[in-house]
Computed example of a mutant assay.
Amino acid sequence: MPNRWLSVEEIAEYLGVSKDTIYAWRERKGLPAHRIGRFWKFKAEEVDDWVRSGGSAEPSEEQSN
């Protein structure tokens, strides 16, 4: 089952960040996530595309001024 839904814990491990970072990115930066019941689930392919498009990038000082 290579295309399965990943949990918050699994996607955090996949990206090498904390669960808190995943929740913050979902809320503030539009990390693609899907609510299934009371759980957030992720597709690795969607998250990969989001990262490649710069979704996880921190704004530079020039961009924030």
Rank of each mutant, 00 (worst) to 15 (best):
M1W: 15
M1T: 10
P2I: 10
P2K: 11
P2M: 06
P2E: 08
N3A: 06
N3E: 08
N3Q: 09
N3I: 09
R4G: 12
W5K: 12
L6D: 14
S7R: 08
E9I: 11
E10T: 05
E10F: 01
I11S: 10
I11P: 08
A12N: 05
A12S: 09
E13S: 07
E13L: 13
Y14C: 09
Y14E: 11
L15Q: 04
G16Y: 11
G16T: 07
G16E: 09
V17I: 08
V17W: 06
S18G: 11
S18I: 05
S18L: 10
D20E: 12
D20Y: 14
T21Y: 07
I22N: 04
I22P: 03
Y23N: 04
Y23C: 12
A24H: 07
A24P: 00
W25T: 06
W25F: 13
R26M: 11
E27W: 11
E27K: 12
R28N: 10
R28F: 01
R28H: 06
G30R: 06
G30N: 11
L31Q: 03
P32S: 09
P32A: 07
A33D: 01
H34Q: 14
H34T: 13
R35D: 02
G37V: 02
R38P: 01
R38V: 02
F39L: 03
F39G: 00
W40G: 02
W40R: 13
K41Y: 00
F42I: 09
F42D: 03
K43T: 02
K43Q: 05
A44L: 03
A44K: 14
E45L: 11
V47F: 01
V47P: 05
D48G: 01
D48R: 13
D48A: 01
D49A: 15
W50G: 10
W50K: 06
V51N: 00
V51P: 00
R52Y: 03
S53F: 01
G54Q: 09
G54W: 09
G54N: 08
G55F: 05
G55R: 06
G55P: 04
S56W: 07
S56I: 04
S56F: 02
S56A: 14
A57M: 05
A57Q: 12
A57H: 11
E58F: 02
E58W: 06
P59A: 03
S60M: 10
S60P: 04
S60R: 09
E62F: 05
E62L: 13
E62W: 08
E62N: 13
E62M: 15
N65T: 07
